[in-house]
Design a protein around this nucleic acid. Structure first.
Lengths: 116, 116
DNA sequence: CTGTATCCCATTCGATACTG
DNA sequence: CAGTATCGAATGGGATACAG
């Protein structure tokens, strides 16, 4: 492959990564998806508890964005009072391996940083 | 494993993911690391070009944070005018598989979204 | 329980200009 | 080339209160 072709290839990969990050960036989205990965189905207040530090305003906003991007499905359950269930879509589940890798990396990073 | 133990395990995993995100979140960091993954060694202005849309102010700031977190190494080359080379540390390189997964996912997400 | 509304401060981030 | 300085707009994000 020529340098030119190589560079084009790299540019495409850079764009793909940036596409991913446009959907996933922010302090909370990955953590929310992680919660849904671990528990499969989860209510609003459960996620609020799982994701340490998030406010209900932010959770609401982030869930909406994830829904728009077809990563999360929202179901209203006809209980009294009503509860709302969130779960990953099939497409959302394709993030699972990324979440797993990020979990592993989080552990190893903590070990690394605590060396100093 | 009891439900209690299961839940503790999940909480630990949630924290690990949030640790990762505390280091990696923001619009740009992953893209910058991606550039360094693809090219190995890269100058400031090169990265500025790779990461579409980033300003020099942001790049400077993000690189500093990545350096503090021991993910990136900065070397001043004694050229005229001076150039500065950035590269991943050994620890930074452990992010490579995550970057690759994010690249793949970016492609598949684009296909998915364009279905509508 | 699941949100929305409001207030308000902090941070992010782009644009532009400037320095060594 | 590799940044820093400054301004200003937009967004992020916490606290509290309130609605269905």
């Amino acid at each position: 492959m020529s340098d030119q072709e190589q560079k084009k290839e790299h540019n495409k990969e850079m764009l793909a990564v940036q596409d991913s990050m446009n959907v996933l960036y922010g302090k909370w989205k990955i953590s929310i998806i992680c919660s849904l990965c671990l528990y499969n189905k989860r209510r609003f207040s459960d996620i609020l508890n799982d994701v340490k530090g998030i406010s209900n305003k932010m959770l609401s906003k982030e869930l909406k964005e994830l829904e728009i991007n077809k990563l999360v499905k929202r179901t209203i359950l006809d209980t009294q009072p009503i509860t709302v269930q969130y779960e990953l879509t099939e497409h959302g589940k394709t993030l699972q391996t990324i979440i797993e890798k990020l979990t592993e990396w989080g552990f190893s990073h903590r070990r690394k940083i605590s060396e100093f």
